[in-house]
Simulated assay, not measured.
Amino acid sequence: AMRKRSALALPPLLLLLLLCARPAQGSNGSLPLVMWHGMGDSCCNPLSMGAIKKMVEEEIPGIYVLSLMIGKTVTEDMKNGFFMDVNEQVSTVCEQLARDPRLKGGYNAMGFSQGGQFLRAVAQRCPSPPMKNLISVGGQHQGVFGLPRCPGESSALCEWIRKRLNSGAYTDLVQKHLVQAQYWHDPLNEDLYRTHSLFLADINQERAVNESYKKNLQALQKFVMVKFLQDSVVDPVNSEWFGFFKPGQDVELDTLQESTLYKEDRLGLAAMDKAGKLVFLASDGDHLQFDRAWFNANLLPFLR
């Protein structure tokens, strides 16, 4: 990748200076990147996370990219995206990041789909090592109310998940053992959601305001949210920009700025917005569909 980059038309002397200025061990002094995949995916799928890891490594030679594997194998990792308690997943990741000497000086984080809200939980709960920028690519920060096209697995599994969510998303059994139930947000039953949502209601300060969550999230330099304008997987798609249905119905939508969370600034998002720390990006494709040119133009600047 380095050979490719040096083929740019740079004057030989400048090129020599640039090469000499590069720190030792092939590192370019860039912050490491931690990535968390979405539902039905795994850390190392060569067509998804593996390809993105490779692309980032080509664009930023010497960068350390850690694509999180939840479990001991790729198969386990994929299953855990459906069935492992999210709070357990988050604490496992926090331990892994704290043990990694390469992350000591801080890191950037990029979450894809549900990995977006999981990495936000890491930012809020685990300030050490420090997360610098959080990039949420199609993450559902106010949860979902529907799974119109659940990706990555057979339609039979999706159908089974849908039935569980519709019949009892907030029963203890379903909450504990079905990942998607833990960010299921029923606007017709807000009280039920607030009381029984094991994960999302907690990180969104629905029950009480945890001051450390607020302080830790505000320590981010940038919180970047990517919304896919043709998204056929996330319902409502507004959740990708931290918006949601107005309470009590499932037709009209509120933006983040119209929500109680923002107006009461329960999570520090209003303060972050005023400080220019929130970045709202749109991509014209379906869920997680973007090309390299779009990625390089829109997301790469936050990783350099």
Rank of each mutant, 00 (worst) to 15 (best):
A1I: 11
A1D: 13
R3D: 09
K4V: 01
S6W: 13
S6F: 14
L10G: 00
L13A: 12
L18Q: 14
L19V: 06
A21G: 07
R22D: 02
L31Q: 13
L31K: 10
H37K: 02
S42R: 04
C44K: 09
N45Y: 06
L47S: 06
S48Y: 02
M49C: 10
M49R: 12
K54W: 02
M55P: 00
E57R: 12
V65G: 01
L66T: 14
S67C: 06
S67A: 11
L68E: 13
I70H: 06
T73W: 04
T73A: 06
E76H: 05
E76M: 07
V86C: 05
V86M: 09
Q89A: 02
Q89T: 02
L97P: 00
R99W: 10
D100R: 15
D100V: 04
K104N: 08
Y107I: 08
N108E: 14
F112I: 08
S113H: 07
G115Q: 07
P129K: 15
K132C: 01
L134E: 07
S136T: 06
G138I: 01
G139N: 10
L147N: 13
L147V: 11
P151A: 05
S154E: 14
S154G: 04
A156I: 03
R162S: 10
N166H: 14
S167N: 15
A169G: 00
T171A: 03
T171Q: 08
L173G: 10
L178S: 07
V179Y: 09
P187K: 14
N189I: 09
D191L: 08
Y193I: 01
Y193K: 05
N204A: 05
Q205I: 01
A208R: 13
E211P: 00
A219L: 06
V224M: 14
M225V: 04
V226C: 00
F228H: 11
L229G: 08
Q230I: 02
V233C: 03
V233D: 08
P236K: 12
S239W: 01
S239H: 03
S239G: 00
F242E: 12
F244I: 09
F245T: 09
Q249H: 04
V251G: 05
T260V: 06
T260N: 10
E264D: 05
L267G: 00
L267W: 04
A271Q: 15
K277G: 00
A282Y: 05
D284Q: 12
H287S: 04
R292A: 08
N298A: 12
P301M: 09
